[in-house]
Write a protein that binds this DNA or RNA. Structure first.
Lengths: 336, 336
DNA sequence: CTACGGTGTGATAACGATAACGAGGCTAGG
DNA sequence: CCTAGCCTCGTTATCGTTATCACACCGTAG
């Protein structure tokens, strides 16, 4: 069954009595070739068990069909949605995504970018706008489109598709203040690694200050990604340190749900005694009892817009694109 | 800044005064080369902004460093854990994972496999043991190691690293029966696409029958993946159709949590009025109130064992490996 | 002084597809 | 009958790296 060597286009050419070039054409859609010839070639290929060799094609044509993508974590429904949006569009156009996880670490991101560039991707998508100097240099010299996502970078490397994490949280603060809450806390936002989380915390502080409110109720919950458990622990600390807190905004729905469960275990009513807000509109926030007020960051849309942008860029429309997404505040039972 | 053409090894060779072959050696660890020569070459490479070209290397050496992996969904913590286990081990050895999502559809899996094989991966990992005939044939003729995971296939294509979904559920049924429950239901397990879910339901039916109990309380919850919301809807139907049910096993923790929330909304006490069991040991099951009894399928271990197996196989130990994983029953408040 | 093993490097020829160019056949219009 | 032009296909060279073989050099043992 297993031949000594896998058949090549040359084998098909011999068998069909045409040149290798014609075999090549038979496999490309939209190339000029007689229908009978093509059918004969495809049949011969099937008979021989031929498998097209992308590696050779990639080298000669200088097109790999790869799109490199780095995300902080594979185990996060938000980033997964972005990748899905990207993936569905791009794979329909024959592209293959090279996915890498930075683990919220820019050093790891640098390593990934270096590895990916060796594969000659036709575009590279990164999450966030903070990178090591070397990573930045690699991206700038890469000679392929670079798209930063999930952020509005202060100094974009190339294109970006994102939103302001600070402004998004501000909209939630406004909601809480309008609802009459004044003693508001924030859980999460460790600055050591996750810039999106710390941007949210900064947005929280700025917004409270603008309202003339005290912005010192900040509970650290450890390095990202923050688990539900860490959210619960943070809520326990919050209730101990600032017992008169009326509302709390968590860096994500996951930590928010963890915080909610801590209240449930202690018999603290939500929102009657304390209101809770999350971030990311994860499925759990919509179904928990009570359901969680949150912000939909349009993760999927980020992916779709990024994918469309890449298709445009590869299709040779080399304008610079700065796409700003509008996150949506979703008010649910946990804050009313 | 951007040169007309990216520098190649030949450029480095010219600049350093050595042959391209020596440049190539400088980039391979463990190859015979003078230290000073190597340092000079690496410095020249850095100066020129050289980026190694894997595509050429892959073609010549007939090694791509790719490992193809298909999973049903990117947005599932269990499969994500498996991929993480795989990824961490393999990327440390210089491999790059090609990840694809079948969306629980074997037709889509077939398309993915065909695409992946063109990239000449050095191993291919698939989730589950059910494939289209053509996909099976492609895998059999692929001439690279094939590993099926998350299942114990009736007729393995090559290697596998998995567990019996039916037996895993049986252990939970035994637990419920030992705890005194007799009117037990099952939510999920639509057979149209997800074989693991339907295997679990079959295991449920078989186990109940062995205990001499009625196994007709089966609630369909739609095509996989089953959301929390669908779990909630299924619980509503269960309470309506079989109001005297004492316990319910759900196809996953996500649907189990959804079911739990439905009980909370209706004021049905868990487990006093109805006990709930899930599957997969997702984070939510450990923190919800009450915490969920579940089965840890050792998702991460599946990935790690698969990764180690691949390393062994590529390192030329071509024995056939059938690795059986032991899922663990975790009893929590929702069933006691 | 010859033999020999280890080290470091170079020359050559691929790996398998396809870009670029061009040639032959055939139809249509003059 | 001739030329223009389209369709179909072949020839040649090449993408950038590396497997392979060859060989020069050095030190040491016999």
């Amino acid at each position: 069954m297993r031949n000594d060597k896998a058949p090549t286009m040359a084998d098909i050419a011999r068998k069909t009595g045409v040149s290798p070039m014609t075999v090549s054409r038979a496999f490309k859609s939209g190339s000029l070739i007689n229908k009978d010839t093509r059918d004969a070639i495809l049949k011969a290929a099937e008979d021989l068990g031929y498998v097209f060799d992308s590696t050779a094609s990639n080298l000669r044509s200088q097109k790999t069909g790869f799109i490199a993508v780095t995300i902080p974590s594979i185990n996060n429904a938000n980033f997964a949605d972005t990748v899905r949006g990207l993936s569905e569009l791009l794979s329909a156009h024959g592209f293959q995504i090279l996915l890498g996880y930075t683990n919220y670490d820019t050093e790891e991101e640098e390593r990934l970018i270096e590895q990916f560039l060796r594969r000659k991707p036709q575009a590279i998508v990164v999450t966030g706008g903070k990178h090591t100097p070397r990573a930045r240099k690699l991206l700038e010299n890469a000679n392929v489109p670079v798209i930063e996502t999930w952020d509005v970078p202060a100094e974009p490397i190339g294109h970006f598709v994102g939103f302001s994490n600070a402004d998004a949280v501000r909209s939630m603060v406004d909601h809480f203040v309008a609802a009459g809450y004044t003693r508001i806390a924030f859980i999460g936002g460790d600055a050591s690694r996750d810039t999106r989380g710390s941007d949210r915390r900064l947005g929280f502080i700025a917004a409270l200050s603008d309202h003339g409110l005290d912005a010192s109720r900040l509970i650290d919950a450890g390095a990202p990604p923050i688990s539900m458990r860490e959210g619960a622990n943070a809520m326990a600390r919050l209730l101990a340190e600032y017992p008169d807190t009326e509302a709390v905004i968590c860096v994500s729905d996951l930590s928010a749900f963890g915080a909610l469960t801590e209240c449930q275990r202690r018999g603290v009513p939500v929102p009657a005694r304390i209101a809770i807000g999350g971030f990311g509109d994860y499925e759990i926030g919509g179904i928990s009892v009570p359901a969680l007020t949150t912000i939909n960051a349009q993760a999927r849309q980020i992916g779709e817009r990024t994918g469309q942008l890449i298709l445009d860029l590869i299709d040779d429309k080399p304008d610079l694109h700065h796409v700003t997404i509008e996150p949506q505040l979703i008010v649910r039972e946990s804050s009313r």
